[in-house]
Design a binder for these strands. Structure first.
Lengths: 111, 111
DNA sequence: CCGGGCTATTCAGTTTCACTAGGTACCGGT
DNA sequence: ACCGGTACCTAGTGAAACTGAATAGCCCGG
């Protein structure tokens, strides 16, 4: 992945994962696979797990350990109330950024 | 500023500054003021100067020292060829991100 | 005439986040 | 018995932005 994209993901990846979890609960491996399918082709697995631990510690998600039929037990994450609030805040910030950038892209360079 | 915005700016702020400079040359203080006017209300001055030094070292901008009528001499930055290429690359990466996020925002909660 | 206020730049130290590059563990099929 | 797929975790690295200063030139008011 380009270094540029890597840097641009900072702060955004968290929002992306929260958005995924707002749709339905999911476990780490599943989220990683989902991201890969949608074009975030080489986000490292370690990155996703680290992020999940972070948002768990901040109390944005609830966790349930579910035995898996293949492999070790899954940690299934689901967005809780605080998480939803945080996600809304994320979208507001994101929208703000997109609007500013859109303005810049179009008309700028006023004297 | 929200911590969220701070993190989201990583990688983006550089593109923003390059986009500003693609319109016209500018010096650090001017860029900071411009950002503040446009709603990036409390980006630290130090951040902008550090960024300018970074893109100068990467050879994305040319620098000219211009005596100021008030205060110390200004370092006026202008985008060069490499800078323009880098900016185009930035817009491509940005567009990719925006499209992915837009999909996420709409198509929530697919089974 | 000198101190405060504006212009303008620089720097040291900290934090956050994603990446690299592994390792652990459990299961089924060959 | 081993390999490949599922599933999770960790230690160390690097990039970028922040905090909170310091430095420095110029002009104006008291």
């Amino acid at each position: 992945m380009g270094k540029q994209e890597t840097e641009m993901l900072k702060g955004t990846l968290e929002g992306i994962v929260l958005a995924i979890l707002s749709g339905r609960p999911a476990h780490g491996y599943e989220i990683t696979a989902w991201l890969r399918e949608r074009g975030f082709s080489d986000i490292a697995e370690g990155t996703v797990y680290a992020l999940l631990i972070r948002i768990e510690q901040r109390g944005l998600v609830d966790v349930e350990k579910v035995p898996s039929e293949k492999g070790p037990p899954r940690k299934v994450y689901s967005l809780n109330g605080r998480g939803h609030t945080h996600l809304e805040e994320f979208w507001r910030t994101w929208t703000f950024l997109v609007e500013r950038l859109e303005q810049l892209r179009e008309g700028e360079s006023r004297p």
